[in-house]
């Protein structure tokens, strides 16, 4: 999370723009002023072709949140333990804090923002709401991304399979039970929708 003293840096103001031309223009501006060696990356995010310039050191999490204003993925631990930053990369859940933004070249990235189709919440999202599977909510986007991936791979997971698949997503509020029940409810809805 950005610490308050940085919220007025020029880059942050500009970062509210999501279009890549803006990001690119901004970075170009920086290049002229500060002679940084930015790397050009072409990738796909939520089905859209996206290009950006970044530093080698930037994590995918940093780039998504600060560069592209996709703030659905959260920074919890920034070291791979909590799963709040989970996004799909080439159809696998990954911790975006442990991926360099430059590694997104040619990859397909899906974030929580891409899950609700045409403004309609996905059954997993609906069930989390209805099942009160969240309190503070910081872990929720990471859970939603992982759960959706789980149910696509294994439509009828047992409770143990659910807990195992979600071992990389930590929640400090709910005690997990409501999350597990919401996953089971979502699995049922998805099943009904199929049949």
């Amino acid at each position: 999370m950005s610490s308050p003293q940085h919220t007025n840096t020029p880059a942050q103001k500009h970062s509210s723009t999501r279009t890549l031309q803006h990001t690119t223009a901004l970075q170009r501006g920086n290049e002229e002023r500060f002679v940084t060696e930015k790397i050009h990356v072409s990738t796909t995010i939520n089905g859209e072709a996206v290009e950006f310039l970044c530093d080698a050191r930037q994590s995918l999490l940093e780039l998504l949140r600060d560069g592209l204003s996709l703030t659905g993925c959260k920074e919890g631990c920034n070291n791979g333990n909590c799963g709040a930053c989970t996004v799909m990369m080439n159809h696998l859940p990954v911790n975006s804090c442990c991926v360099l933004a430059v590694e997104a070249e040619d990859a397909e990235i899906e974030t929580v923002e891409g899950i609700a189709a045409q403004g309609q919440l996905h059954p997993v999202q609906q069930c989390f709401l209805q099942g009160a599977a969240l309190q503070c909510g910081i872990c929720t986007p990471g859970f939603i991304v992982t759960v959706k991936a789980l149910l696509e791979q294994n439509p009828h997971p047992t409770e143990q399979e659910i807990r195992f698949a979600l071992a990389g997503n930590l929640c400090r509020c709910t005690g997990y039970d409501k999350i597990i029940r919401s996953v089971q409810a979502a699995a049922e809805i998805l099943q009904e929708a199929k049949s």
Binding site: S2, Q5, D55, S59, E62, D66
Partner: peptide, 29 residues
């Protein structure tokens, strides 16, 4: 909680060479 992103912003405006200075001035690197 780590302030990685916060300091990251600051760093972005500096060249690689100035990173250490930035770290010291913001104390969040």
């Amino acid at each position: 909680m780590a302030t990685g992103n916060g300091s990251g912003w600051q760093v972005r405006h500096w060249t690689h060479r100035f990173f250490t200075i930035t770290t010291i001035t913001t104390g969040a690197g």
